[in-house]
Amino acid sequence: MSRALLSRLSRAVSFALLLALSALFLIPFYLLVRNGLATDPEITAPNWTFVPHTLHASNITELFDDPTVPMTQALWNSTLIAVLTTAGTLLLASLAGYGLARIPYPHAPRVFYGIVATLMIPPAVTFVPSFVLVSSLGWISTLQGLIVPTLFSAIAVMLFRQYFLGFPGELEDAAALDGLGYWRTYWYVVVPNSKPIFAAVGALIFIGSWNSFLWPLVIGQDESSWTVQVVLSTFSTSETVDLHELFIAAAISIVPLLAVFVALQRHLVAGVNSAGMADWD
């Protein structure tokens, strides 16, 4: 067989393989929608039906009308937490990253090492100490308890610092000639010209916050402070499960993230790359 034919053949095989793998990767999403729009007898029927005979969109209203499932409150909590966490982290981390990268200060390297050192402590291991602190502040089951301790992301500071180190100095020089100090240069020149890094870090933080589970589980002890993840977990691990309601709830819970995903995928990929490789370059 000629080499050209062989390479064509192998390309066709790998295309078929990719199609099969894609189908496999999409099955969980399919199940989410299928079960979410079916009735419980249809889900539990011994014979598999690929598409429910009638799509029960009424499952959605049933979910929100069910007084035992605090779904509306949970969606509101998750939204508020994710938005405020993202905004707060971006503000704090970008300011710190800019200061570290651009404002000369003799002890800046020491400050930077102090920040990077916290990355060595796996965040999950600190949940007991953090719980201790938050509970002694009286912040259990409060919004500030769920948000404030998560605002100080060392990895976000590293990403911003890295980015600002490569920021073109000419822009800042021009701003200085116009008589702008650090503060106004930052807001009027640097931020408007750095949208991609804000989008990348913002998307990562938003997804991480919306999907986080251990911290909201530990801190959100009162039902009124449950996030979507805690609600889903509580009902999926309980004794009697209302399958169609649970699946439609789970499907609804990923809609905001799919929106972020579609809108920011390019930036997200860039963010994953810099976050994944930040420590090792």
């Binding site: 199940l31 999907n211 993840q229 990923i254």
Partner: peptide, 19 residues
């Protein structure tokens, strides 16, 4: 292949466990 990154462990576990 990147899409599951948007899914939470809670939702994925729910699909795995119950379906």
């Amino acid at each position: 292949f990147f899409l599951p990154t948007a899914c939470s462990y809670v939702v994925a576990s729910l699909i795995w466990r119950l379906s």
